[in-house]
């Protein structure tokens, strides 16, 4: 898949129209993980629009995003930065075949402290 194809595929996967962004930065204005992020939420939208996928795939931000959806909730243009981050994250996880969480690892992770939903959520997010 060349970069144009990959960009289009990721735009489709994210289900969001990055062209609707008016570059106001409201998403980054309230992101609780902003300081940890090397690539900021608004940059995910503009980098994807520009097809700079590699920068996004190599970013640390992928693993810091909490998927709290505040950026999605607040966006005045109906753009979903968190969905873009999710799409990029999947594009990194899946081709590696490196399912981050194997089924057999799950029982060991279960204890009273960890809510089951978290394990299910992580299993969905980190697995092919």
């Amino acid at each position: 898949m060349d970069n144009t194809e990959l960009t289009n595929r990721l735009k489709e996967l994210s289900g969001t129209n990055v062209r609707q962004c008016m570059k106001c930065g409201k998403c980054s204005g309230r992101c609780p993980m902003f300081d940890k992020m090397d690539v900021k939420p608004h940059q995910f939208v503009s980098y994807l629009a520009d097809g700079k996928i590699e920068k996004l795939q190599n970013s640390k931000s992928l693993w810091y995003c909490l998927s709290c959806m505040e950026c999605v909730e607040r966006c005045p243009r109906g753009v979903a930065p968190a969905a873009v981050i999710e799409a990029i994250r999947e594009s990194v996880v899946r081709p590696q075949g490196g399912n981050r969480l194997q089924p057999e690892e799950v029982p060991a992770l279960l204890n009273d402290e960890v809510p089951q939903q978290l394990i299910v959520g992580a299993y969905r997010k980190y697995n092919h």
Partner: peptide, 22 residues
């Protein structure tokens, strides 16, 4: 400041305006 505010919240008698400086 080029950017948008994400949240305004009270802190004592002050208003904290959190936003991005793009």
């Amino acid at each position: 400041i080029k950017g948008m505010v994400g949240k305004v919240y009270a802190n004592g008698d002050k208003l904290m305006v959190q936003g991005s400086d793009l």
